[in-house]
């Protein structure tokens, strides 16, 4: 049985429309008009036990709304969710003891006290005996290399240290299902790496299922074999991370080094110019005509070096999210590349 199962999940919000200006305000006061905004539409996917799934989408795609429906914080307009076989919206204590939510922009630690105090509060709420709580805190602190900071007030910790503490607070009850919304937001590279390594280790030790959203592709590539992508509220891809490039990038990246400085107008004849830095050119070339284009380049230009690779995944995903128009998500088939 999957740990998380979402079927045709939809959420519509009713938002009040208000025109600017005094007249708009008056009209808004007397006769308020509402507009239905569909934040999430017919999203279905499942997460198996122990799986780490990346959840991708641009800002406003519906990621947070979906996460909130999965955690039971908001009620879906239609469709159904099950987490560990239960309906999350009922927020029954036995389910809440097995799930957790980490939000990169929000914190639950007590600002004026050392992290230890907040952790003790959470341990008490989850009914963890004090000695067991202490053992878990020591273990988590060691994994996150933050043992020395446990007695300093939270307000004096760095952003990275605070995030590590947030993770400890979110995981002290050893949940089996983790919903992580931007857990590395704003962290420096070292702290990001530490958080990633920690999550990988937690997943390995506890066999926990993880759904992770992040704007840093490095998080996704380091942790997730599988990604679910949503755009404008709809699911556009559910499958292996490696499959994203094949699915959405009908082009490859050709990197050239020429004998002399490159001319953009000349290079544009071979493909889409991504960048030119002196003698080094990066081109995007359609897969179909790749061999012919490379042959032309080699015969027509003075090429000293040439490599062909898949374009960076960030770029592919960025293009998918840039190109999509409202309502065009149907043209993508979903699930075909599922793991």
């Amino acid at each position: 049985m999957p740990t998380v199962q979402a079927d045709n999940l939809s959420k519509t919000f009713h938002v009040a429309d208000k025109q600017p200006g005094m007249l708009g305000t008056l009209r808004h006061f007397i006769n308020r008009s509402y507009r239905a905004v569909q934040a999430v539409r017919d999203v279905s996917f499942a997460i198996e036990p122990g799986e780490v799934v990346g959840f991708l989408g641009p800002n406003g795609a519906g990621k947070t709304t979906t996460l909130k429906m999965l955690t039971g914080l908001i009620h879906p307009t239609s469709g159904s969710v099950s987490v560990l076989g239960q309906v999350p919206f009922k927020r029954r204590p036995d389910l809440l003891r097995q799930v957790t939510l980490v939000m990169g922009q929000k914190q639950q630690m007590i600002w004026d006290l050392p992290p230890m105090e907040s952790l003790r509060v959470n341990a008490a709420v989850y009914g963890i005996p004090e000695d067991e709580a202490r053992r878990r805190i020591d273990e988590l602190a060691e994994m996150l290399t933050i043992s020395d900071e446990m007695t300093r007030p939270v307000r004096k910790l760095s952003l990275g240290e605070r995030m590590k503490c947030e993770l400890m607070a979110a995981l002290i009850h050893h949940p089996r299902v983790l919903f992580l919304d931007e857990p590395t937001l704003g962290l420096d590279v070292n702290a990001q790496t530490a958080v990633r390594n920690f999550l990988r280790e937690y997943n390995r030790q506890h066999g926990a299922s993880i759904l992770l959203t992040s704007h840093y592709m490095a998080d996704i590539t380091a942790l997730c074999d599988r990604v679910v992508m949503i755009h404008k509220g709809g699911l556009i891809y559910d499958g292996r991370l490696a499959g994203v490039v094949n699915r959405f990038a009908p082009f490859r990246e050709v990197k050239l080094e020429l004998a002399s400085d490159a001319d953009e107008s000349v290079m544009a004849r071979y493909g889409e110019v991504e960048s030119i830095q002196g003698r080094v050119v990066r081109l995007l070339v359609n897969r179909d005509g790749l061999t012919a284009t490379v042959n032309r380049l080699l015969s027509e230009q003075d090429v000293t070096d040439l490599t062909v690779s898949d374009p960076p995944i960030e770029e592919v995903i960025g293009r998918v999210f840039d190109d999509g128009e409202p309502g065009d998500t149907d043209e993508y088939t979903t699930g075909a590349d599922s793991v």
Binding site: D94, K106, V125
Partner: peptide, 18 residues
């Protein structure tokens, strides 16, 4: 205001008590 009510609602304890 800060949206941290979500943390409280996800705790296995009566939210009004908390």
């Amino acid at each position: 205001r800060e949206g941290t009510l979500d943390f409280v609602l996800l705790k296995p304890i009566n939210s009004q008590f908390w």
